[in-house]
């Protein structure tokens, strides 16, 4: 049975807190995995693995992160434009920490707990989950 949005959120918060060894109260939807919670590249691999196990999904590498930047490529203007769109959608995020002209390597910093929850809600509503 598909988990409810609050169940998804609770599980994700718990997995992220566990993988990044952070106390629960430090992990909020708007928390940047990198800037607020100290994630490095391998932590993203770890989190994906734990999500796959917890939700019975196969999560193709990178798909969970590309969401915000699908099709944008390396063009700085395209990145800046997409950034403006995201800012409008996510007012609670700490945009002041992101450079005005970010490059591709800055993008992982935009990934939040909320990014992950949104992705899972989308996948699970597509009926892609297998029973646990």
């Amino acid at each position: 049975m598909k988990p409810s949005p609050s169940e998804i959120e609770a599980r994700v918060l718990s997995i992220v807190a566990d993988a990044l060894d952070q106390p629960a109260e430090r992990v909020a939807l708007d928390s940047s995995l990198v800037d607020d919670l100290g994630a490095e590249s391998i932590d993203f691999l770890d989190i994906v693995f734990r999500l796959e196990s917890a939700f019975g999904l196969k999560i193709p590498e990178e798909e969970i992160w590309q969401g915000s930047f699908d099709g944008v490529g390396d063009d700085p203007d395209a990145i800046a434009e997409r950034l403006a769109q995201l800012k409008a959608r996510r007012p609670g995020f700490r945009w002041d920490r992101i450079p005005a002209r970010p490059t591709r390597s800055d993008l992982p910093r935009l990934i939040t707990v909320g990014t992950v929850v949104e992705y899972l809600e989308k996948r699970l509503s597509e009926g892609a989950a297998s029973p646990e």
Binding site: I42, L45, D46, V48, F49, K58
Partner: peptide, 10 residues
């Protein structure tokens, strides 16, 4: 590839 923790080698 599905079941091993990706951090195993590390």
């Amino acid at each position: 590839l599905g079941g091993l923790n990706p951090l195993w080698l590390l």
